[in-house]
Amino acid sequence: MKRWGLTIPLTGVPLTAHRELIERLPDLGYTDVWSAETAGTDAFSPLLLASQWAPSLRLGTAIAPVYTRGPGLLAMSAATLAEVAPEKFVLGIGTSSPVIVENWNAGAFTEPYKRTRDTLRFLRSALAGEKVTENYPTFSVSKFKLERVPEIPPKIMLAALRPGMLKLAAKESDGAITNWLAPGDVPKVRAEIGPDVELVARIFVCPTEDTGAARALGRMLISSYLTVPVYAAFHDWLGRGDVLAPMHKLWASGDRKGANAAIPDEVVDELIVHGSPDVCREKLESYVDNGLTTPVIALLPTGGDQAAQVEALAPRD
């Protein structure tokens, strides 16, 4: 089945104002809606609404951080979506970032690989209805049992950027979720998980033919994201370490404007999909051609009608 996803909620659009668009998504050819969780909506509420407006859509979190909820609360949140959208909900979990975990949520960002692995193993047991008492390496749980066990446990996918986490996703979860990559990067990621594991990626799409505006927005996003250590390491692994080194140096010195200017056009054009809707769709298809299972559009604001842009970016047979 060809998958085609959209990130919700759209920027600046109230949650309840999404209903008409989400109801239309299946007829437009969209198969999935995926949420995120940083400092906007939580990851679960937009999906709960979407489950009632368009029951045929698959719903996914990309991602719910493993640090910002206790293990039991994370299991409860997942079980709720699995109850209202049986076989349609995918729980995507991951580490998030030190800024979100420590600065915004008073947590400790320690041992991210182990914490993700342990949370995955706990969730497998809890969502299957087991009473869990376990001393995991990164946390302990005593006598936790869901009161409302989903009839069908949700699939669980892991956010993964480099070989260790990608291999864990392939071995113990139902798929890998990645971010900030170009079509040509997909084969390298795919090689770590094998041919049969689902690979989901959020792709930033700016549907405008104003190349200067698209690149300016892209540079702001790239400098904000790719200076985060986990993304910097990801792009070192992908082979962009040298070309992004000037950006990192200027960012570290506090020169944000200079850091943006240091990002080459070709890097922006690789990582940000922009152009006419047809051009954008063609590039999205190139991700799939290179081994991506599920492209998830993250629509960047251009000042245009976002609902019309979502319609224009719908897949074509």
Rank of each mutant, 00 (worst) to 15 (best):
I8H: 07
P9K: 01
L15W: 03
A17C: 06
I22Q: 03
E37F: 06
T38C: 07
F44Y: 12
A50F: 07
W53Q: 10
R58P: 00
L59P: 01
G70V: 04
L73P: 00
L73N: 12
S77E: 15
T80G: 06
F89R: 04
V90E: 11
G94R: 02
T95R: 09
S97P: 00
E102L: 02
N103M: 14
W104F: 14
A106G: 12
R115V: 13
T119H: 07
L120C: 09
L123I: 03
L127N: 02
G129R: 00
E130S: 02
E130T: 01
E134R: 12
P137Q: 09
P137F: 06
T138R: 04
S140C: 08
S140D: 11
S142T: 14
K145S: 11
E147H: 13
V149I: 14
P154G: 05
K155C: 05
L158F: 03
A159W: 06
L161I: 10
R162Y: 03
G164R: 14
L168Y: 05
E172H: 05
W180A: 07
A182P: 01
V189M: 07
P195M: 03
P195L: 07
E198Q: 12
L199P: 00
F204L: 14
V205T: 14
A213Q: 13
G218Y: 07
G218L: 07
S224W: 13
S224Q: 14
G241K: 10
A245R: 12
A245E: 15
L250K: 13
S253D: 14
S253I: 02
S253F: 01
R256C: 01
A259V: 09
A259K: 07
D269M: 01
V279W: 00
D289H: 08
G291I: 08
T293F: 04
G303T: 11
G304Q: 12
A308F: 01
A308Q: 15
A312E: 09
D317F: 15
D317N: 15
